[in-house]
């Protein structure tokens, strides 16, 4: 186990402090709603980052995983009376399984081709949910009202939601910290740079891509369950729409893909803008906030293509100073028994 550094403790305390203090600035429900959206999109951005930021799988299909999370817990609650906490876990696992089913056949696709495939996957999923009677199709499902309890994750007040979403986000960030420092993180980044090199160095790129997609899908689905418990009504339009996938990418890209805090920062910048734009412009807001997004993206792409966090972290790499004191005893213990015998050709 890696020892916990003072810096890590400071970051954790700072995170808890900021999360605890921010809702106290105003009692206005809308203000607190915006904070919750920051947490939720932060979680979605961090989840996307595992695929897009580390592994170079620029997914535009996260809405499918979100939808799986939302529908799984909701159906389990409506049909079976299961606690959404159990539903959340099941939704996450189900999304991870579906993600593996998506990642395997697309494992030969790179860059924009993967992006297109992920988008096609999510759009197919939306059509499926819209036409599936068992989940009420396009009509959607209102969640049955339960008493104000933690067991059914339903609260009249916004504070419990605030605590839940930022706890989930905190867990996702911790997982990313761990990934970055482990072999998996190195493998993800190697694949992003060059799958050819990665495979030459013994990395099973297909397996690593599937792992990244499953992890990403898991956390995205968890956000989906949270959303359905928060809004208490889901339909394909709200939880499987393509615009959601785009927003998730933007959150990560604006804040800085490939960094732990980038997506959180991106959510903290974009969510207030989009939420206030939506509120101010009513039903027409959904389009407007995307236009505003577009302008922001263009500016950032021109000024700082690596995202805003790039301003502060110019030379960011995982490895800091290596220990110079490690000895250099080279052990020569190898010896091919038979080495290579090549016989190729004869057409």
């Amino acid at each position: 186990m890696p020892k916990i550094s003072r810096k890590t403790i400071m970051i954790v305390l700072l995170y808890v402090g900021v999360v605890a203090i921010t809702p106290l600035f105003s009692k206005a429900p809308f203000y607190r709603h915006v904070l919750i959206m920051v947490g939720m999109y932060g979680l979605l951005g961090v989840a996307w980052n595992i695929m897009g930021g580390y592994t170079g799988l620029y997914s535009f299909g996260q809405s499918a995983f979100f939808g799986i999370g939302a529908y799984t817990s909701t159906m389990m609650l409506v049909k079976g009376g299961f606690s959404p906490w159990i539903g959340m876990l099941c939704g996450g696992i189900l999304a991870a399984i579906v993600a593996a089913g998506m990642a395997y056949p697309t494992s030969r696709l790179r860059g924009p081709y993967f992006t297109i495939a992920s988008q096609a996957f999510a759009r197919t999923f939306q059509i499926l949910m819209t036409n599936w009677d068992y989940v009420e199709g396009a009509i959607g499902i209102p969640l049955p009202l339960m008493p104000d309890t933690w067991r059914f994750m339903q609260f009249k007040d916004k504070i419990p939601y605030h605590i839940i979403i930022f706890s989930l986000l905190g867990i996702a960030i911790l997982v990313c910290y761990y990934i970055e420092r482990s072999r998996t993180g190195y493998y993800f980044r190697a694949i992003r740079d060059s799958e050819q090199v990665a495979s030459a160095l013994g990395i099973n790129t297909v397996r690593q891509r599937i792992i990244a997609t499953m992890l990403s899908a898991f956390f995205t689905a968890i956000a989906g369950t949270f959303y359905s418990q928060y809004v208490l009504y889901i339909d394909p339009e709200s939880v499987t729409h393509h615009a959601l996938s785009v927003e998730i990418v933007m959150v990560a890209a604006v804040g800085g893909a490939g960094t732990i805090w980038g997506p959180v920062l991106g959510a903290a910048i974009l969510m207030p803008i989009s939420q206030y734009a939506r509120a101010a412009l009513g039903g027409a807001g959904r389009g407007i906030d995307l236009i505003i997004y577009g302008v922001i993206i263009m500016v950032i792409a021109l000024v700082r293509p690596t995202g805003i966090l790039g301003f502060f972290q110019r030379e960011r790499t995982i490895e800091g100073e290596g220990g110079d004191d490690i000895g250099t005893t080279v052990t020569a213990d190898t010896g091919a028994d038979d080495a290579v015998r090549g016989s190729l050709g004869q057409q």
Binding site: D193, L201, T317
Partner: peptide, 18 residues
């Protein structure tokens, strides 16, 4: 084909993780 976004040490670590 250096892994462009990784340092020299990280590049070699991708190998040693094998």
């Amino acid at each position: 084909q250096p892994l462009r976004d990784m340092t020299v040490l990280e590049n070699v670590m991708v190998g040693t993780f094998c």
